[in-house]
Design a protein around this nucleic acid. Structure first.
Lengths: 328, 328
DNA sequence: CTGAAAGCGCTTACAG
DNA sequence: CTGAAAGCGCTTACAG
């Protein structure tokens, strides 16, 4: 605070070399003479030198920071998913000396942050179909990674879980548990996740030679889950796949109040493995996304893109797993 | 990305003034002639100029960023509390052009980040008694704000809720609801929150002229709440204050399985108003901290401290409120 | 392999 | 009120 930090200049003076040489040692440039390197390293450690990032940024044109963009509503921050993303990203970028900056989804701000060299690129989570930000960033040729497959096909890097495979996991598990009369509460069918989970479930049911599942559209909310369950509770269904845990926590009390015991009368499988899945009664069997691993991959892809903007765009799809609990 | 961003230099050339003048306009220095200001503003908007932050940082010695330090375990990130802090901080610092950087509690890294001018100061959440970081930062005279009263008294800025007042709120509510035989499951008694909530509860019980409450120490975990509840379930208690919602979610099933109905036989009040409080059965009456407001205040205090390091240290304590739900 | 020098894009005394 | 100039602390061609 009070005393000025040590500069490259001082280290150079102490080591008896030029600033350029100290800079090379700091940045690990290989062409420095062994002995000289050691002298410099000694000077660095005795002075406790640590480079001024602003100065470096100014010449390298790199912020050394990436942004995690939150939807503007801000609701998402409370979502445990957000925490899992953060804990996946941090271990990847920290060793690289890259900072993680939290920003909201205001378009101007995000674009400005990148243009001002305050951010080298951004990770977008929870974007919806109408969100123009991904396309804007792409068109401005700014480094960006999406946390899910975009609603409309576009040339953008994303990391996702194989949604259809997750739904198939749920179907296979229900069938293996003896269920024959299946139903599903879907997500909103205009979202890729909503579509893919329905498709994966349906296909798996067909593969097992069972009659078509009853389908009720939901909206990923607790209330939506409850509403959908009310339309199912009097049907003769013995296996239910709910496309999100949150909807399932809405559906469970409706089933119970309707006299359908879980899992005795109807087995239930959710999706996400979020905290409500553990807290509800009975705890939910659910499809788990490897969110931390996915987030780590997003960070890696983004850093890669920042360093080599000319490389071809590629995306990564992870496999989900099934977590079995008492609801099935 | 491709085309270089506009610089102050270019704006100056277009406006026909010096760089200094443009800089003054950008920074809102009052002494610029009206007409000149307008010419400059026009040039800024036609060029879409936006200042390079690294260059500014280099000369002002301000990073324009503050850090939110997470405990190293990383567990905290999943805590909804964290999300509430973020959504409280962001609206305060965004208009100031200050970034929020997420970092882990590694001491060297935090101190380095500040010394490198990558961070102007930090907000520390979830520090525990043994954590040397707060003291280190204070001794290095670096701007820091704690999210709670420090375990040992020290000259540091913190924002907290009045814990004892919250516990008293719980006691008053239980008594007003007709409870006479009270008990409490405390937090760990080596923490300030654990101590203060117990003290506040006890004092309020005494104030009502009731016999001393039964006290069982917990540890703020769900399992700890369940374990503590086992020691209470056969006691003749009709009002229970649990010092955290998470512990309460552990205690509830134990009470139910022990034949104690909530709220008919025993009324239960938690603390935190976290998501488990809403999700458990029955939903919990609980003491709510205004976390977003507290976080906003932390941000304000930190920014203030960065700008005027010489001002006396002051802290802020907020009043809690009671949220009544079905458990009481 | 090493150093002198230019330059990154700003802000801010200092004159006028 | 305005401008010329110095300087913030680095990196990186360019010579040698």
């Amino acid at each position: 605070m009070d005393r000025r930090p040590v500069t490259l200049e001082e280290v150079a003076r102490i080591a008896g070399v030029s600033r350029a040489t100290v800079s090379r040692v700091v940045n690990g440039v290989a062409t420095v003479d062994r002995e000289l390197r050691q002298v410099v390293e000694k000077a660095i450690s005795t002075t406790g030198y640590t480079p001024n990032r602003a100065a470096r940024s100014l010449v390298t044109r790199r912020a050394g920071a990436i942004g995690l963009v939150l939807p503007e509503e801000g609701r998402t921050v409370h979502d445990p998913y957000f925490g899992r993303v953060v804990s996946g990203v941090l271990p990847v970028i920290r060793p690289l000396g890259v900072q993680l900056v939290l920003t909201t989804g205001d378009h101007r701000e995000v674009v400005d942050d990148i243009r001002q060299h305050r951010l080298d690129g951004v990770i977008l989570i929870h974007t919806h179909g109408a969100d123009p930000l991904p396309r804007q960033l792409i068109e401005a040729n700014l480094p960006v990674v999406l946390a899910a497959r975009p609603v409309r096909p576009m040339s953008i890097t994303y990391v996702d879980v194989d949604q259809a495979a997750g739904a198939a996991l749920a179907a296979d598990h229900l069938v293996a548990s003896g269920c024959r009369r299946l139903a599903t509460i879907t997500g909103p069918l205009e979202t890729p996740a909503g579509q893919d989970r329905l498709r994966g479930f349906r296909d798996a049911v067909a593969r097992h030679g069972l009659p078509e599942a009853v389908v009720v559209e939901g909206d990923f909310s607790r209330e939506g889950g409850a509403a959908a369950a009310r339309r199912l509770v009097d049907l003769d269904v013995d296996g239910l796949f709910v496309a999100s845990d949150l909807m399932a926590t809405g559906a469970l009390p409706v089933l119970r109040n309707g006299g359908r015991r879980v899992p005795e009368d109807v087995k239930v499988v959710g999706f996400d493995d979020s905290s409500p899945a553990v807290e509800c009664d009975p705890p939910l069997t659910t499809v788990r996304q490897p969110v931390e691993d996915m987030a780590a991959e997003m960070a890696r892809l983004l850093v890669e893109r920042v360093e080599r903007p000319d490389r071809p765009v590629s995306s990564v799809v992870f496999a989900p797993t099934l977590v079995v609990r008492r609801s099935s």
